[in-house]
C-alpha cells in the first residue's frame, strides 16, 4: 500500500490504532495537546482512535464532553488561540450541521481575521462514509463541503501508515486541520473493514506532509485519482484492468487542502485519461475540482473526457440494496474505463 516492502515480522496496525499511537506519542512530548469529544475517554472512542489515552493521560487531558458540539468545538478554538493544541472529535461528520459555525466561522477564519497575529493549532477529527446501512445522517463523506471553505487544511488517509503520519503532522501544525477518517477503514470489526488499510506502521514518530498526494500504483493508460476508501476500490479496479492489459495508475490524494495538483497533472500528462473516484456527492465536489485542476491547466494532455465515479446526488438511503447501488466500487471504475475507451 505505502510502496514500502513489508517484512513478514513487521507489525501492522489498523488506522484506529495508528491514530491513537500518533496522539499518545505527541501527548508524551507536548503537554499542550489534549483531546476532547463525546465518548472519547472512558469508552475509548467508538471508532477506537482514542483507545488507551485516558488510561495513560487521565481525564484532564482526555476529556469526555457533554453532547454539545458547538460548545466544545468553540471552546477548543479559544484554547487553541491561547497556545493549547486541542484535538476535538466530531463523532460523525454528518453532525457538522449543529456546529459548523464554530468550525468555519471561528476555527477557519480567526488566523486571517487577526492579520496573522493569532494561531489556531487544532485538529478536528471526524468519521466519514457509509456502506453499513446507517441512514443518511450517519453515512456521508462531505469532503467537498469542508475542502470548499478556506482556512482549514483537510486530510483523509487511506491506510494506517498515512493515518499516523498525517495525524502527527496535523498535531504539529499551527493551523486548523480537519482529519477525516473513513469508518470502513478503521479496522473496527462491527463496521466491517477494508484489509488493505491495515499496513505496517513504524513505532517511531514520523510525519506525512500535509498537501502531498502519492502515486500508490504506477501505470501508463489511465489515472485513477481517489481518497480514503476509494483508493482501495481503485487498486482493486487496477488489478482487474491489468488482466485486460490496461495499465492503471492510482493516485491517493491523502490531503484535500492543500490539494496536490502537480501530482495529479503529472500523472494525467503521462496517461492522458482520468477517472476520479469519490464517495462524496457527485456534484460541486472533490471530483469536479480534480478534473478542473487538469483541464484548466492543459486540456491537450487528455485523450478522452474525464469520468467521475461518485455518490449520486441523492440523500443517502437506508435500504441496503439502495445504498450499495449508489456507492462507488471497483466494478464501476472498470465500467468507467470501458466507457472512456469506447
Amino acid at each position: 500500500m505505502t510502496g514500502t516492502i513489508v517484512k513478514s515480522n513487521e507489525r501492522k496496525l489498523t488506522i484506529a490504532r495508528s491514530m491513537a499511537e500518533a496522539l499518545a506519542q505527541e501527548m508524551r512530548i507536548d503537554p499542550t495537546v489534549f483531546v476532547m469529544g463525546e465518548d472519547i475517554g472512558t469508552l475509548g472512542g467508538i471508532y477506537g482512535n482514542t483507545r488507551g489515552l485516558i488510561e495513560e493521560f487521565g481525564p484532564e487531558r482526555v476529556r469526555d464532553t457533554p453532547i454539545s458540539e458547538t460548545g466544545f468545538i468553540g471552546a477548543a478554538v479559544g484554547a487553541a488561540q491561547d497556545g493549547m493544541r486541542p484535538v476535538v472529535e466530531l463523532m460523525f461528520v454528518d453532525f457538522f450541521g449543529v456546529c459548523f459555525d464554530a468550525i468555519y466561522n471561528l476555527m477557519a477564519k480567526n488566523i486571517y481575521f487577526s492579520g496573522g497575529h493569532l494561531k489556531v493549532p487544532m485538529v478536528l477529527m471526524t468519521s466519514t462514509g457509509g456502506g453499513y446501512s446507517d441512514g443518511g445522517q450517519h453515512s456521508q463523506c462531505l469532503y467537498g463541503t469542508f475542502a470548499h471553505l478556506p482556512g482549514m487544511k483537510v486530510v483523509a488517509p487511506s491506510n494506517a501508515y498515512d493515518a499516523k503520519g498525517l495525524m502527527t503532522a496535523a498535531l504539529r501544525d499551527d493551523s486548523p486541520v480537519v482529519y477525516m477518517y473513513h469508518k470502513g477503514l478503521q479496522g473496527m470489526g462491527w463496521l466491517g473493514t477494508e484489509p488493505g488499510a491495515t499496513v505496517h506502521v513504524p513505532e517511531d514518530s514520523y510525519t506525512v506532509e500535509i498537501g502531498k498526494a502519492k502515486v500508490v500504483r504506477e501505470g501508463r493508460d489511465v489515472t485513477i485519482v481517489s481518497l480514503g476508501i476509494g483508493v482501495h476500490h481503485a487498486l482493486k479496479a487496477a488489478d482487474t484492468l491489468a488482466q485486460q492489459n490496461v495499465s492503471a495508475e492510482v493516485v491517493d490524494l491523502r490531503s484535500l487542502v492543500p490539494l496536490d495538483r502537480d501530482t495529479i497533472r503529472a500523472s494525467v500528462a503521462k496517461t492522458g485519461r482520468l477517472i476520479v473516484v469519490d464517495e462524496d456527492y457527485h456534484s460541486f465536489g472533490v471530483s469536479a475540482e480534480v478534473i478542473a485542476s487538469v483541464v484548466e491547466h492543459d486540456l491537450s494532455v487528455l485523450k478522452a473526457a474525464p469520468v467521475r465515479v461518485a455518490y449520486p446526488d441523492v440523500p443517502i438511503p437506508y435500504a441496503r440494496v439502495m445504498e450499495q447501488f449508489c456507492l462507488p466500487n471497483p466494478a464501476k471504475i472498470v465500467a468507467a474505463w470501458a466507457q472512456m475507451a469506447a
Partner: peptide
C-alpha cells in the same frame, strides 16, 4: 474582528453568541 494577545483580547466576533464557547476555552486553557 480584532485581537491582541498582548492585551489578552481574543476578539471581536460577528456571530451572535459564538464568542461564549471561546471564552470557556480560554478559561480552560
Amino acid at each position: 474582528h480584532m485581537f491582541s494577545k498582548e492585551k489578552h483580547f481574543y476578539g471581536g466576533h460577528g456571530i451572535v453568541g459564538a464568542q461564549v464557547p471561546i471564552g470557556a476555552g480560554l478559561a480552560f486553557s
